[in-house]
Amino acid sequence: RAMSRSGWGQLVRRLQHKAFGRVEQIPAAYTSQRCSECGHVAPGNRKSQAVFECEACNAGRCNADVNAARNIAAGRAVTARGDLAAGRSANREPQLATPAA
């Protein structure tokens, strides 16, 4: 309950205002079930709340939250813009469009 009362919406609005064009909201859906090595998504990949182990490639056991963070950082989650971020570099911030001079 304390988390829901923390004003996350206001934090998001302030970040979007202060860093206009550089903030992307990435939904967390399936990021902890998707393998950060091969991309296989299955509910069985999540062995428990904290343990992730891919059924397809047997990449090894790791923390499910760490696996989800790797997926988000690699751009394997659908972004707020609706694409799969495949055309953008994961290591570069989105650039603002500059007006033609």
Score class of each variant (00 low, 15 high):
S32Q: 08
F20I: 06
Y30H: 12
N71K: 01
C35M: 05
I26A: 11
G87L: 07
A101E: 13
K18C: 15
A29F: 12
H40C: 03
Q95V: 15
N67L: 07
R22F: 05
A85Q: 10
K47A: 00
S4F: 14
G7P: 06
A19W: 12
S6T: 07
Q49T: 07
A90L: 10
R22Q: 12
V12M: 10
D83H: 02
A90M: 12
R1P: 06
I72E: 01
P27G: 15
G21V: 05
R46P: 00
V78N: 05
A77K: 01
V12W: 07
F52W: 08
A85G: 14
I26V: 15
L15I: 04
P27Q: 11
Q25F: 01
S32C: 02
I72Q: 02
G44P: 09
G7Q: 13
M3Y: 12
A97K: 11
V23P: 04
V12E: 12
I72R: 02
G39R: 15
A59L: 07
N71P: 05
D65S: 00
R46N: 00
A56H: 03
F52R: 04
E24D: 11
A80H: 15
P99D: 10
C62N: 10
A2N: 11
A73P: 03
V23M: 03
Q10C: 09
G87R: 10
A100K: 08
Q33I: 00
A74Y: 11
E93F: 12
W8R: 06
G44K: 01
A56V: 01
R81W: 11
K47I: 09
Q25D: 02
K18I: 13
G7C: 06
E53Y: 02
A2C: 04
A2D: 05
C54D: 02
R92T: 06
A68G: 03
R22E: 05
G60I: 01
N91P: 03
A2M: 05
D65F: 00
G82A: 03
G9E: 13
C38F: 09
H17Y: 14
E93Y: 14
R1M: 06
P27M: 12
I72V: 09
R70P: 07
E55W: 00
G60E: 08
N67Q: 08
S48V: 01
R13F: 10
T98E: 15
G39Q: 09
A90T: 09
E24F: 13
A90R: 15
C57E: 07
P43M: 01
C57Y: 03
